[in-house]
Structures are given as C-alpha cells and as structure tokens.
Design a binder for these strands. Structure first.
Lengths: 215, 215
DNA sequence: CCCCAGATTATTGTATACAAATTATATCGG
DNA sequence: CCGATATAATTTGTATACAATAATCTGGGG
C-alpha cells in the first residue's frame, strides 16, 4: 500500500500495542492525523484496516475505539489460530517444494542458533519464528487462509509468550519446528497438522500462565 | 456503515457476482463512481472491503481487478467454512440460550414449510437458511469468528448450490438443521460440530456436481 | 435536584481538487 | 519495420472543504 497510509497504519498500531492508546479509549481521525503528520484520508484507511484486524472497534455511531480484548477473546484467538495454522501446515506438507523446505530448514537453523547462545537472542528468535510460520502459510498456497491468518496472528501476543519462555521452552519450540519439517519432508499432512496444533496450543498455555489476569 | 459507501459496496459486489464485471477485468475508481452515482471516496472504501473479502485483487501498482477464483479456491473456501462453521456450532451448543434455541426451531420450521410445498419455495429457503446459520454464528459469541465467516460465506455460491437441490436434498438439509438443534439442546459440542461439518461438506459436493467446470 | 429541549460543538461521511505514479502512445533513430 | 525514449493520458494517493450526524453543554421548568 501507499506511503502515508502505511505510515498511519504502523503508527496507530504501535500506539495501541504500546499501551499509549489504552483499550476502550477513543480514536479520532483528526487527532490521529496530527500525530501521524498526514491528512484524515490515509488515517481512515488505516483505521478500516485495523478494524478488520480487530485492533479497533466502532461504536453504533461509527466512532472508533481501541478494542478491549478479554481472556475469552484471547483464548478464542489461539483456538482459531491453532485450527487454521494446523490446516495450513497440513496443506503445506503436500505442496511444499524441496527449495522451500530447504529455506525452512535454514530458518529453523537460525532459530536453533539464537536459542543455543549463552544468553538466548529472543529478538532473533521472534523474527525467525515469524518467518518460519509465514513460510508455512505461504507454502499452503491459499491466499484466503493467508489473509485470515495475518489478521489473526498478533505479534505482541507472540512476543509476550516468548518473553516468558526459558531456554528449555525455546529449545522445545525449535524442536517442534524440526518435527514439522520432518512431517513436511514425509509429505504427511496429518502429522504436520498434529505438530502445529500442539505447537500453538502449548504457546497458548505458556501465554496463559504468564498472564495472571487470564487466571 | 454509511449510505454511499454501503451502496457502492453492494453495487460493485453485484457487478462482480452477476458477471457484468467478469473475473480478471479491471475496476477503475472513477468508472465505478459513475456507475454508483457517488464520488471516489466511498468507492475506495468499498473496494478495500471487497479486497479483504477477496472479491477484488490488486496489481503490483495497486490497480484493482475482479478476482478470478479457480476450483481450488472454491474448494478451499468450503473447507475453511466447514471447519470454522463447525467450530461455531460447537461453541454455540454450549452457549445457546433457551430463547435463541426457540428462535432456531421457529426458523427451521419455516424452512421445513418452504420445502414441504408442492413447488418448493427456494427463495424463502435461502433467506431462512441464511438466518439459521447466522443465528448459530451469533450464538457462538465470538466476534472474531463471526467476522471471518461473513467474509467467507458466499451467498451466490449457496444459491447456486440450493438451486440444484431437489426436494429430497432440501428436506435433508432441513433435517440436518433439526439434528443440529438437537445437538444444541443436548449441549453436545462435538455432535454439533460433526453435524455442521457434514452439512457444509455435503453442500460442497452438491455445488461441485452442479458446476461442471469444477470437474 | 433532576430532567428535558434547544443550541453548540465535535466527529465522521462525502465530494472535489491536486499530486504522484503508472501505463499507453507517439515520435525518432537505426 | 522494430525498438527505445520522451511525452501524454490514465489512474491511484493525498489533502482539504463542506455536509450530515451524533455528542455535549446550557438553561429553564418541574
């Protein structure tokens, strides 16, 4: 998308994720336009996009507010993500090319390296982890599934989850990725589905444990 | 949403679905604005919306075109819909209120009546069928799931499917709805999931059979 | 003190004008 | 005749002005 519109999207998104715009707070187009240094037009586009991704909700009278997610919402998000990303893994297993599989292996090697360090490099882990999952989704070659999942995978949630992972859990994550690669190499869709389901659901419980308010 | 924007959305969508704007054809903002009798601004919003719903795709240079769905896309759409709507049914089964359940029963009674006529009333069937599914989705009380599903359920596809249903199949559809109601009344999530999965997948195969190009 | 009506303000929706980028076309050289 | 390049036309992106609508404030009456 275009420059101003993209910039507004990134800016508003980070306002929300950083907590500067707390859940439930109102977002006015002119205010955001001033903050972003653009006019209302690209701000409006950004708000629509954030709305489809459920970062933003609207009142009856179409006034935008920062969405307020409760624990049910987050649990449901993980459930949907597990279901859909497992489906993506199953499709990927029978469609992935040897080249992409090699890319996947390389990616997971970087993850393993980041984890093996004396002081695990969580930043690299997160970046490579995201890429790993993106490769799987792309290998599933379903634009529809991809578009649903991008709106569903909340990087801040992933970050909060990984931040609570110890070395053991990070290693286990890398190992699960490895098993997923095996499943893909074996062209075993159901194996891939099972591994991915477990991978996401384990992340969910790690997240829940790290977030007291979810009890 | 607002009037002009909604109107543009409906108009463009119907252009696409009717075939007046064939798959792959280019959509220019000014052209659509003239057709809809509104300015470019609401047309742009409508196009973004249609883009997230994958009715419209954009070229590298952001020019919009009517999306071209192949049989894989449609099959994948049914698969996702089966998975997600079955999940909605499972959630609904344990959350539905007695009042909503009564509404559901009434809705299916109207479906059964439309089907039982000498000359089955397909229009009523479609309207009530849609409402039936909407009630289930709403009873699942997951705004996220609901928003994904509305973008996924293609009414024209449903229509084409139902148009090929004979009385027996229409009756079977109503019967499956009845079984879904039973599952909800019994608060049996897995039963509800299974019934809904079968319901959608049967529709898929009816659709495939009715659409030679899908082979 | 509360509540309602009207006026005022704030905010979103739409139209239009202009800027930037892309695509098509025409012209020139080989 | 073909190809490259410059130019013109088309199209999207952004800014701004105005219109419509919703929220808020104010004052009076009960």
């Amino acid at each position: 998308m275009s420059k101003a519109s993209d910039h507004a999207y990134a800016e508003i998104r980070s306002l929300i994720l950083s907590g500067n715009a707390p859940p439930g707070s109102s977002l006015t187009e002119v205010g955001l336009a001033e903050i972003c240094g653009v006019s209302r037009t690209p701000v409006r586009e950004a708000l629509r996009r954030l709305e489809t991704e459920l970062y933003v909700v609207r009142s009856e009278s179409q006034r935008p507010f920062v969405a307020d997610w409760n624990s049910d919402d987050i649990g449901e998000m993980f459930t949907l993500r597990a279901m859909l990303e497992a489906h993506a893994a199953a499709r990927a297993a029978t469609r992935i090319t040897p080249e992409t599989l090699a890319t996947l292996r390389a990616c997971n090697a970087r993850i393993a390296a980041a984890v093996a360090m004396a002081d695990p490099d969580v930043t690299t882990f997160l970046a490579e982890n995201r890429q790993f999952h993106d490769i799987i989704i792309s290998a599933a070659s379903s634009p529809r599934l991809a578009s649903i999942l991008t709106a569903l995978v909340e990087q801040p949630v992933v970050r909060r989850t990984a931040a609570r992972y110890g070395r053991t859990e990070l290693e286990r994550s890398a190992h699960e990725h490895g098993e997923l690669i095996q499943a893909c190499a074996a062209r075993d869709a159901e194996w891939a589905r099972a591994v991915m389901t477990g991978h996401i659901r384990r992340a969910y419980h790690a997240f829940s444990a790290a977030t007291p308010s979810l009890s």
